[in-house]
Design a protein around this nucleic acid. Structure first.
Length: 729
RNA sequence: GGACGGUUAGCUCAGUGGUAGAGCAAUCGCUUUACACGCGAAAGGCCGCAGGUUCGAAUCCUGCACCGUCCACCA
């Protein structure tokens, strides 16, 4: 291409595709294929695998561009950087996405059945998965596609099974009946971290319980009451402790079409620290099957019994009595309030704002329910993580995240790892009919009568000669994500990749998944690899809208990175993202930064055209020229200073400062001042310096805006030139 | 209820003890042969509020207000 053919303004669309293809064809995204790979030191980042449920959002773009800046920089610093891409099957989110599609066809997953449904999920994953790959490539990131992983790959599934068996062998896995977060729509449990609380306007009902009044937001749970509790130090109630009191209630045996009837029941009164003397009357009604706190009270007082009144479908079950059975929780609440009013037991109902639990995924209200689930004991695993953090085996950026993580670990509870979903890793737990009869699941028996291990589906039970049945429960999606930094490198096989690239250099994570993912990778890495899975945890900023609100579909303030790329080009979007990253402060999204980027690219382009025209076509070496004149000396010194600042800033993840520094240097010192000097003094020395500063600037800018710099590099007459991505800084 | 962060030009943000800065927008002048996605010039801020330390504070300390995020079993 001749210089005269270059357009007067930079047109990204003209070059982006061709350049990305050239990079891919070079094989340089694969660190093993780099020149002198054996002599380079490893550097590695595993991509936070996007969920295959939709499109990339601007947060993905930010995170991956930041990682890519590091990777590209390290490649030019003679490391062999691995940027490992992949995708997550996203258990509940994945299943929910496909269910939503089915709903449009008027079907549910039950209509298809497990097998057919899973086929459908796989189909969906393949389709959406390849879209996501395209979108990632659209960001210009230099990931090694030959190493791409998916959490449902066969090898990955083996790793997951391996981990489960390991934990079981160590006694960390147990099956227990607990009050869990139950999503009545998804029909599965959720871990505490997958529950989202929203402040909602409700009512606080004051109900007469014998001589005591009790306040509750959920009067329908009255049907499952099995005790009352007061604080042991609460003098008002000491005489009641240990005794039964008689309370009046709506008789649940009266059919719904009849008027409510008063009936009496006895409730035992216990002393328990969970009761706050300051709140209401200081007495709590205890409904152990449907409230976490109440369940804990129950575990401390063996004399209390437990009655489940809400079923997994979110409706009242037969324990609630004919009057309430079959009603949804909300319907039951209304009826109970109506009955209590009629029976004159409702003292008052005041407006009350309280936190209501919702399913992170489908936003349905969570019902706390008593349920048999698999748990992972967290005490030892958390302790190891805690020690590693305390001994600074991992670095947190920003630093204050360290203490935040430690505080959180201190209050950790066992992890409910089972899910009643179809899409996910099946738990390797088996049983057969005879086993079920002879060894019924007892609460808290280690595996509740299940046999844990790997079995062929054809294997028969020795006792009854019938085939073993595998549990239909699957694992929490984060159980597999926790293994990402080593399972992607083929653990448990001791591969070269594992030896070379574990531990990874830095993990870049959204605050949102700090506990959900980062913490779990940390203890998993320690448990299975004996070392933390990353040296540095970089908790990157969250992109909010201009007024500081979280981006969400319902608010309609989402920014689509692909649309922006279509409008501004990849480099301008990368520039705009990095321009706004100041330390780890959240970003109030402003498209101005993209406009600034676009203008800057144009400036680079035209200064490039000018420079190339000035220096002629003869190949030059990249050696630093000697400068004898003030303007050449000045620009070389300035380049040196810029280079140092940029290096320091990238090392400390100060992407915005690095880019601002480059911008100021390039535009205001190189273009505004030096290029004007060149016009006045077109000497050989000036041209040598011009060439050197221009070429050096392209290298420094490349990690941020790789396309335009690669294109200009191609046009620059450099001796023994390769692609810019592998040029030495 | 706890933890953390923010509050500087119209908007998005730098600046962390010595006369206030950038990008974008707005104003005025330039069809100067790299670039009008440009060049030059001018304009714009009692640096959230109230105290304190200091010769001197946007910058350090204390308190308060507002905004935001995360964590927490308050019925």
């Amino acid at each position: 291409m001749k210089l005269e053919d270059l357009s007067k303004s930079y047109d990204p669309k003209q070059y982006e595709e061709e350049i990305y293809r050239a990079w891919e064809q070079s094989g340089f995204f694969n660190p093993d294929s780099l020149p002198n790979a054996e002599r380079r030191k490893p550097f590695s980042i595993v991509m936070a695998p996007p969920n295959i449920t939709g499109h990339l959002h601007v947060g993905h773009a930010l995170e991956n561009v930041m990682s890519d800046v590091l990777i590209r920089r390290k490649r030019m610093e003679n490391y062999k950087p691995l940027f490992l891409p992949g995708k997550d099957h996203a258990g509940i989110a994945g299943q929910f996405a496909v269910e939503k599609e089915l709903k449009k066809e008027g079907k549910t997953r039950a209509d298809l059945g497990r097998e057919k449904f899973l086929e459908r999920v796989w189909e969906y994953m393949r389709e959406i998965g390849s879209n996501i790959d395209q979108e990632l490539k659209g960001l210009g990131i230099s990931t090694d596609w030959s190493r791409a992983r998916f959490t449902m790959d066969e090898a990955y599934q083996h790793a997951v099974e391996n981990v489960f068996l390991h934990y079981h062998k160590k006694g960390y896995i147990y099956r227990g009946k607990r009050v869990v977060n139950w999503c009545t729509r998804c029909r599965t449990t959720l871990s505490d971290l997958e529950v989202e609380y929203t402040e909602e306007q409700g009512k606080l009902y004051h109900i007469a319980y014998g001589q005591i009044d009790i306040a509750t937001t959920r009067p329908e749970t009255k049907l499952g009451d099995s005790a009352l509790a007061a604080h042991p130090a609460d003098a008002r109630y000491t005489e009641w402790i240990g005794k039964d009191i008689t309370i009046e209630t709506s008789d649940p045996t009266v059919p719904r079409d009849k008027k409510p009837k008063m009936s009496k029941i006895n409730l035992h009164v216990v002393a328990d620290i969970a009761a706050d003397p300051q709140f209401g009357t200081g007495v709590i009604k205890v409904t152990p099957a449907h409230d976490m706190t109440d369940y804990e009270i129950y575990t401390r007082h063996p004399e209390i019994n437990i009655v489940q009144i809400i079923g997994e479908n979110g409706r009242m079950n037969k324990n609630a009595g004919v009057r309430f059975e079959g009603l949804t929780v909300m319907e039951a609440r209304d009826l109970m309030v109506e009955d209590l009013t009629t029976l004159n037991l409702l003292k008052k109902a005041e407006d009350y704002t309280h936190a209501v639990a919702h399913c992170d995924r489908c936003k349905s209200v969570i019902e706390p329910l008593l349920s048999d689930q698999w748990f992972l004991k967290m005490d030892k695993l958390a302790l190891h993580a805690q020690r590693a953090i305390e001994k600074n085996k991992v670095t947190f950026v920003p630093e204050n995240r360290k203490q935040i993580m430690l505080d959180w670990i201190a209050g950790i509870r066992d992890w409910n790892v089972s899910r009643q979903l179809w899409w996910g890793h099946r738990i390797p737990a088996w049983r057969c009919e005879c086993d079920e009869k002879t060894k019924p699941a007892r609460p808290d028996s280690r595996s509740g009568g299940w046999h844990i291990g790997l079995m062929a589906p054809t294997e028969l039970c020795r006792r009854c000669k019938k085939p073993w049945q595998q549990t239909t429960d699957v694992l929490d999606t984060w159980f597999s994500s926790a293994l990402w930094p080593f399972a992607t490198l083929h653990w448990p096989d001791e591969t070269n990749d594992l030896k070379t690239y574990y531990p990874t250099s830095v993990i870049s994570s959204a605050r949102e998944i700090f506990y959900l993912w980062i913490f779990r990778m940390l203890f998993s890495g320690l448990e299975f690899m004996g070392r933390p899975p990353f040296k540095t945890i970089f908790v990157h900023p969250t992109i909010l809208d201009k007024s500081g609100r979280k981006m969400s579909k319902s608010v309609g303030n989402i920014v689509d990175p692909m649309k922006l790329i279509g409008e501004y080009g990849i480099d301008a979007v990368r520039f705009g993202l990095m321009w706004q990253v100041m330390s780890t402060q959240d970003i109030h999204w402003s498209e101005d930064a993209l406009r600034a980027g676009k203008k800057f690219l144009n400036k680079i382009w035209n200064s490039g055209r000018f420079t190339l025209a000035q220096i002629g076509t003869q190949n030059r070496t990249l050696r630093k020229p000697r400068a004898t004149r003030p303007h050449t000396q000045k620009i070389l010194a300035s380049l040196e200073a810029t280079s140092k600042t940029v290096r320091a800033n990238i090392e400390t993840y100060e992407f915005g400062t690095a880019l601002h520094t480059l911008y100021d240097f390039y535009w205001h010192e190189f273009c505004d001042v030096f290029l004007e000097e060149v016009k006045k003094d077109p000497s050989s020395e000036t041209h040598q310096v011009l060439f050197y500063v221009f070429a050096s600037s392209l290298k420094l800018l490349h990690p941020f805006i790789p396309f335009i710099t690669e294109k200009l590099w191609e046009l620059t007459p450099v001796q023994n030139k390769t692609l810019l991505i592998v040029e030495e800084l």
